[in-house]
Amino acid sequence: MVTVSRSTRLSIANEIDLVRARQEVRVQAQALGFSLVDQTRITTAVSELIRNMMKYAGGGTMDLEAVRNGVRAGLRIICVDKGPGIPDIGLAMKEGYSTSNGLGYGLPGTKRLVDEFDIWSEVGKGTRVTISKWR
C-alpha cells in the first residue's frame, strides 16, 4: 500500500513557478536519496509536464508527494489543469506528435523517464498526469 508522508502543492502560472517547481522537486529527490541521474530524470519529467500545462492549459497545479510503499521510498507528482483536455490520448502519447510544432517527445519521453505514468484527460474538463519514481 502506498502512503503519503509529505505533500506540497504548488500552483503553476508562469516560468518562475516552473523554476520553483523544478527546484523543489530536485531538492526533495535529493533529500530522498535519489541518484543524480534519477534526480535529473524526475526534474526533466516534471519540466515537461509543467511546460505542457503552461502551453496548452495556461497553468494548473502540481502536487509533490513523498510516498512510501513498505520499505521503498519514492516521489509522486500529480499535475492537474483545467485546460481544453486531450481529444486522443493515444495520439498525444505518440513520439513526434505535436499540435504546437514542438518535438512531440514530451509525454512519451516523460513516460520513459519515470517508473509509473498515468494520464487522464477529458475534453473541456482538463488533464491530469500522475508520475512516480521509486528509490
Binding site: V37, T40, E95, Y105, G109, R112
Partner: peptide
C-alpha cells in the same frame, strides 16, 4: 553536457 543530462536526453528519446 553532464553524464546525468546525457542519459536523460537519451531516455526522453530526443
Amino acid at each position: 553536457v553532464s553524464p546525468a543530462i546525457a542519459q536523460t536526453i537519451v531516455h526522453l528519446g530526443v
